[in-house]
Amino acid sequence: MSESSLFLQFLFSGLTAGAIYALVALGFCVVENSLRIVNFAQGDFLTLGGFFMTTFLLSLKIPWPLAALCSILAVGLCGYLLERIALRSAKTHDPLTLIFITIGASIFIRGLIKLFWGKNPRIFPPLITGEPIRLLGASLTRESLLILAVGFFCVTILHLFYRVSRSGKALRAVAYSPRAAALIGLPVGFLNSVSFFLAGALGAVAGLLIVPVTGVSFDTGVILGLKGYAASVLGGYGSFPGAIAGGLLLGVMEALVAGFISSGFRDVFAFALLFCVLAIKPSGLFGTHEEERV
């Protein structure tokens, strides 16, 4: 394998991992765009999506597309319930309290997963299979391509939804000022639930794509959640194009560090980068000013 194809291989490796980080990051953004909090259960939505899929696809023998839809709706519902039951009953807008609740929810979800699905890792077959695509001596699996495509599809839909549709604008209004939104008659609580539904659904989508590649165990979402968070901070917390850019950038940089420097430094690098972004440019790559949000 020549140097140039080696570089290309690192790039492909990074894009695959990065696309997943990006999907997780999108989930963070959705919540940021209504409740303005960090939802630390985002990674566990991914795990839940994977486990629901094993049940629907393998135990209940539902065909792939329908099982996927059921899983997405199921995890969306979990997100909805999380907001409706845990967050709203806290009766506060204090971000710190709400963030702590999401951390608690994350531990709770992992406990439930262990209870219902056990402690062993699981896996299900991917939607598309086939020989990997070879390009200049490097290879990229079809699954990776699918992950990338779905990532871009999701960001386009979300971008349009938030910028063009009335409901999307309403969600952003809630983010800007829950009080003012309530005053003009927007159902703030309901809109918050909707954004958590979306976050859950996006988490499930990420799970559906990554689990056929890596398998899923109850703690799969922990590290992916953290990486997704790092990616969304890198891209500018709350920005959808930023989430995609941040995810892919983080994935590629990690792979290059692992390839050219040392694989041991991969995670150190990711979190050092997060630290630097927070310290030097907290608004990230695509971060916008408050005034421009609505």
Binding site: Q9, F10, G14, T16, A17, A258, D267
Partner: peptide
């Protein structure tokens, strides 16, 4: 010789090397 984090989702970079 290469190393990888057991939580990584892709080891192609190390394997290619």
């Amino acid at each position: 010789e290469e190393a990888f984090n057991p939580r990584d989702t892709d080891m192609t970079a190390q394997l290619a090397k």
